[in-house]
Design a protein around this nucleic acid. Structure first.
Lengths: 109, 109
DNA sequence: AACTCTATGGTTAGAAG
DNA sequence: ACTTCTAACCATAGAGT
Protein backbone atom coordinates (compact mmCIF):
# COMPACT_ATOMS: atom_id res chain seq x y z
CA UNK A 1 0.00 0.00 0.00
CA UNK A 2 0.91 3.58 -0.56
CA UNK A 3 4.23 3.83 -2.28
CA UNK A 4 7.66 2.82 -1.13
CA UNK A 5 8.55 6.49 -0.77
CA UNK A 6 7.16 9.57 -2.40
CA UNK A 7 8.12 9.69 -6.03
CA UNK A 8 6.66 13.12 -6.88
CA UNK A 9 7.03 12.47 -10.56
CA UNK A 10 4.16 12.89 -12.99
CA UNK A 11 1.73 10.01 -12.70
CA UNK A 12 1.45 8.65 -16.21
CA UNK A 13 -1.58 6.42 -15.64
CA UNK A 14 -4.73 8.44 -16.17
CA UNK A 15 -6.95 6.84 -13.56
CA UNK A 16 -4.28 6.89 -10.87
CA UNK A 17 -3.47 10.50 -11.63
CA UNK A 18 -7.06 11.57 -11.36
CA UNK A 19 -7.56 9.63 -8.13
CA UNK A 20 -4.48 11.22 -6.61
CA UNK A 21 -5.57 14.64 -7.81
CA UNK A 22 -8.97 14.33 -6.20
CA UNK A 23 -7.60 13.09 -2.90
CA UNK A 24 -4.83 15.63 -2.65
CA UNK A 25 -7.05 18.49 -3.71
CA UNK A 26 -9.26 17.61 -0.77
CA UNK A 27 -6.23 17.49 1.46
CA UNK A 28 -5.08 20.92 0.36
CA UNK A 29 -8.50 22.44 0.93
CA UNK A 30 -8.65 20.91 4.40
CA UNK A 31 -5.17 22.13 5.29
CA UNK A 32 -6.00 25.60 4.04
CA UNK A 33 -9.15 25.73 6.16
CA UNK A 34 -7.24 24.48 9.18
CA UNK A 35 -4.60 27.16 8.81
CA UNK A 36 -7.32 29.77 8.45
CA UNK A 37 -9.04 28.83 11.69
CA UNK A 38 -5.89 28.12 13.67
CA UNK A 39 -4.34 31.49 12.86
CA UNK A 40 -7.30 33.61 11.75
CA UNK A 41 -5.66 34.56 8.50
CA UNK A 42 -7.16 34.85 5.08
CA UNK A 43 -6.10 32.37 2.49
CA UNK A 44 -7.21 30.79 -0.70
CA UNK A 45 -6.04 28.31 -3.25
CA UNK A 46 -6.59 28.29 -6.98
CA UNK A 47 -6.37 25.16 -9.10
CA UNK A 48 -6.49 24.90 -12.86
CA UNK A 49 -6.98 21.28 -13.77
CA UNK A 50 -8.27 19.22 -16.67
CA UNK A 51 -10.66 17.55 -14.22
CA UNK A 52 -12.69 20.64 -13.49
CA UNK A 53 -14.31 22.82 -16.11
CA UNK A 54 -13.61 25.91 -14.10
CA UNK A 55 -10.65 26.74 -11.92
CA UNK A 56 -11.22 25.46 -8.41
CA UNK A 57 -11.07 28.15 -5.80
CA UNK A 58 -11.41 28.00 -2.07
CA UNK A 59 -11.04 30.84 0.31
CA UNK A 60 -11.61 32.07 3.80
CA UNK A 61 -13.39 35.29 4.38
CA UNK A 62 -15.39 37.92 2.64
CA UNK A 63 -12.54 40.17 1.62
CA UNK A 64 -10.51 37.37 0.11
CA UNK A 65 -13.67 36.28 -1.62
CA UNK A 66 -14.18 39.69 -3.15
CA UNK A 67 -10.59 39.81 -4.32
CA UNK A 68 -10.92 36.37 -5.83
CA UNK A 69 -14.10 37.36 -7.58
CA UNK A 70 -12.24 40.15 -9.29
CA UNK A 71 -9.40 37.80 -10.09
CA UNK A 72 -11.80 35.28 -11.54
CA UNK A 73 -13.59 37.77 -13.74
CA UNK A 74 -10.26 38.90 -15.06
CA UNK A 75 -8.83 35.44 -15.46
CA UNK A 76 -11.80 34.17 -17.46
CA UNK A 77 -11.36 36.98 -19.94
CA UNK A 78 -7.62 36.37 -20.01
CA UNK A 79 -8.18 32.67 -20.53
CA UNK A 80 -10.67 33.20 -23.31
CA UNK A 81 -8.01 35.27 -25.05
CA UNK A 82 -5.28 32.70 -24.56
CA UNK A 83 -7.10 29.44 -25.05
CA UNK A 84 -8.14 29.91 -28.62
CA UNK A 85 -7.99 26.19 -29.25
CA UNK A 86 -10.09 25.21 -26.30
CA UNK A 87 -13.86 25.34 -26.59
CA UNK A 88 -14.58 25.38 -22.88
CA UNK A 89 -13.24 28.87 -22.36
CA UNK A 90 -14.82 30.72 -25.25
CA UNK A 91 -16.71 33.84 -24.37
CA UNK A 92 -20.12 32.22 -24.58
CA UNK A 93 -19.14 30.01 -21.67
CA UNK A 94 -18.07 32.78 -19.35
CA UNK A 95 -21.55 33.63 -18.12
CA UNK A 96 -22.45 30.00 -17.55
CA UNK A 97 -19.31 29.47 -15.54
CA UNK A 98 -19.92 32.56 -13.44
CA UNK A 99 -23.39 31.27 -12.65
CA UNK A 100 -22.00 27.94 -11.43
CA UNK A 101 -19.49 29.73 -9.26
CA UNK A 102 -22.19 31.75 -7.55
CA UNK A 103 -24.24 28.64 -6.83
CA UNK A 104 -21.25 26.74 -5.48
CA UNK A 105 -20.34 29.68 -3.28
CA UNK A 106 -23.78 29.76 -1.71
CA UNK A 107 -23.56 26.08 -0.88
CA UNK A 108 -20.04 26.31 0.56
CA UNK A 109 -21.09 28.82 3.18
CA UNK B 1 4.36 15.72 21.98
CA UNK B 2 1.92 17.14 19.48
CA UNK B 3 -1.58 17.40 20.88
CA UNK B 4 -3.96 14.71 22.01
CA UNK B 5 -6.04 15.34 18.91
CA UNK B 6 -6.36 18.27 16.56
CA UNK B 7 -8.24 21.14 18.10
CA UNK B 8 -8.47 23.44 15.07
CA UNK B 9 -9.55 26.36 17.23
CA UNK B 10 -7.81 29.71 17.09
CA UNK B 11 -4.47 29.54 18.87
CA UNK B 12 -4.60 32.32 21.43
CA UNK B 13 -0.93 32.31 22.37
CA UNK B 14 0.97 34.58 20.00
CA UNK B 15 4.21 32.67 19.79
CA UNK B 16 2.53 29.31 19.33
CA UNK B 17 0.23 30.73 16.69
CA UNK B 18 3.09 32.19 14.73
CA UNK B 19 5.10 28.98 14.98
CA UNK B 20 2.16 26.94 13.74
CA UNK B 21 1.52 29.42 10.95
CA UNK B 22 5.09 29.20 9.72
CA UNK B 23 5.17 25.42 9.82
CA UNK B 24 1.81 24.93 8.19
CA UNK B 25 2.44 27.53 5.54
CA UNK B 26 5.51 25.53 4.58
CA UNK B 27 3.43 22.38 4.53
CA UNK B 28 0.82 23.92 2.27
CA UNK B 29 3.43 25.15 -0.16
CA UNK B 30 5.04 21.72 -0.26
CA UNK B 31 1.69 19.98 -0.82
CA UNK B 32 0.81 22.42 -3.56
CA UNK B 33 4.09 21.80 -5.34
CA UNK B 34 3.64 18.04 -5.00
CA UNK B 35 0.18 18.17 -6.51
CA UNK B 36 1.51 20.29 -9.35
CA UNK B 37 4.22 17.83 -10.29
CA UNK B 38 2.21 14.67 -9.69
CA UNK B 39 -0.65 15.81 -11.90
CA UNK B 40 0.87 18.53 -14.06
CA UNK B 41 -1.77 21.01 -13.15
CA UNK B 42 -1.46 24.68 -12.42
CA UNK B 43 -2.11 25.82 -8.92
CA UNK B 44 -1.34 28.55 -6.51
CA UNK B 45 -2.07 29.62 -2.99
CA UNK B 46 -2.54 33.08 -1.61
CA UNK B 47 -2.11 33.96 2.05
CA UNK B 48 -2.89 37.22 3.76
CA UNK B 49 -1.31 37.14 7.19
CA UNK B 50 -0.15 39.57 9.83
CA UNK B 51 3.27 37.86 9.65
CA UNK B 52 4.02 38.92 6.11
CA UNK B 53 3.90 42.48 4.84
CA UNK B 54 2.63 41.33 1.49
CA UNK B 55 0.29 38.53 0.63
CA UNK B 56 2.23 35.31 0.20
CA UNK B 57 1.76 33.74 -3.19
CA UNK B 58 3.09 30.56 -4.64
CA UNK B 59 2.29 29.16 -8.00
CA UNK B 60 3.24 26.67 -10.65
CA UNK B 61 3.64 27.74 -14.20
CA UNK B 62 3.85 30.75 -16.41
CA UNK B 63 0.18 31.16 -17.21
CA UNK B 64 -0.92 30.91 -13.60
CA UNK B 65 1.83 33.37 -12.82
CA UNK B 66 0.50 35.83 -15.35
CA UNK B 67 -3.02 35.46 -14.04
CA UNK B 68 -1.82 35.94 -10.49
CA UNK B 69 0.11 39.02 -11.49
CA UNK B 70 -3.11 40.53 -12.75
CA UNK B 71 -4.89 39.40 -9.63
CA UNK B 72 -2.22 40.93 -7.45
CA UNK B 73 -2.24 44.26 -9.19
CA UNK B 74 -5.97 44.41 -8.74
CA UNK B 75 -5.95 43.20 -5.17
CA UNK B 76 -3.37 45.74 -4.04
CA UNK B 77 -5.53 48.55 -5.35
CA UNK B 78 -8.58 46.98 -3.71
CA UNK B 79 -6.73 46.64 -0.47
CA UNK B 80 -5.47 50.20 -0.49
CA UNK B 81 -9.07 51.29 -0.89
CA UNK B 82 -10.36 49.12 1.94
CA UNK B 83 -7.59 49.29 4.49
CA UNK B 84 -7.80 52.96 5.29
CA UNK B 85 -6.64 52.37 8.83
CA UNK B 86 -3.63 50.32 7.90
CA UNK B 87 -0.42 52.09 6.91
CA UNK B 88 1.18 49.12 5.20
CA UNK B 89 -1.24 49.08 2.31
CA UNK B 90 -1.40 52.75 1.41
CA UNK B 91 -0.75 53.62 -2.18
CA UNK B 92 2.84 54.68 -1.66
CA UNK B 93 3.62 51.13 -0.64
CA UNK B 94 2.15 49.48 -3.68
CA UNK B 95 5.15 50.05 -5.91
CA UNK B 96 7.57 48.89 -3.24
CA UNK B 97 5.59 45.71 -2.72
CA UNK B 98 5.42 45.02 -6.44
CA UNK B 99 9.18 45.37 -6.61
CA UNK B 100 9.69 42.84 -3.81
CA UNK B 101 7.34 40.43 -5.52
CA UNK B 102 9.32 40.59 -8.73
CA UNK B 103 12.58 39.94 -6.90
CA UNK B 104 11.13 37.02 -4.95
CA UNK B 105 9.75 35.56 -8.15
CA UNK B 106 13.14 35.61 -9.81
CA UNK B 107 14.68 33.78 -6.87
CA UNK B 108 11.93 31.17 -6.66
CA UNK B 109 12.52 29.98 -10.19
C1' DA C 1 12.80 34.06 18.33
C1' DA C 2 14.27 30.61 15.10
C1' DC C 3 15.97 25.85 14.31
C1' DT C 4 16.08 20.88 15.20
C1' DC C 5 14.15 16.63 16.88
C1' DT C 6 10.67 13.18 17.12
C1' DA C 7 6.37 10.90 18.89
C1' DT C 8 2.00 11.18 17.51
C1' DG C 9 -1.86 12.10 14.64
C1' DG C 10 -3.00 12.91 9.89
C1' DT C 11 -2.80 12.02 4.94
C1' DT C 12 -3.04 9.08 1.20
C1' DA C 13 -1.75 5.06 -2.47
C1' DG C 14 -3.35 1.10 -3.51
C1' DA C 15 -6.76 -2.49 -2.76
C1' DA C 16 -11.32 -4.01 -2.35
C1' DG C 17 -16.18 -3.39 -3.03
C1' DA D 1 -15.46 5.47 -12.08
C1' DC D 2 -16.64 6.54 -7.06
C1' DT D 3 -16.38 5.07 -2.05
C1' DT D 4 -14.38 2.99 1.74
C1' DC D 5 -10.61 0.82 4.09
C1' DT D 6 -6.12 0.78 5.99
C1' DA D 7 -1.02 0.19 5.97
C1' DA D 8 2.55 3.02 5.43
C1' DC D 9 4.39 7.37 4.69
C1' DC D 10 4.23 12.28 6.12
C1' DA D 11 3.40 16.65 8.78
C1' DT D 12 3.74 18.89 12.78
C1' DA D 13 3.04 20.27 18.19
C1' DG D 14 5.65 20.59 21.71
C1' DA D 15 10.15 20.17 23.68
C1' DG D 16 14.82 21.15 23.68
C1' DT D 17 18.57 24.28 22.26
Amino acid sequence: MTRGKVSLAYIAKDSARKATFTKRKGGLIKKTKELISLCEIEACGILFSPYDLEPEVWRSQLKAQQVIQKFRNLSLVEQSKRMVNQESFTKENVEKIKEKVTKKRNVNQ
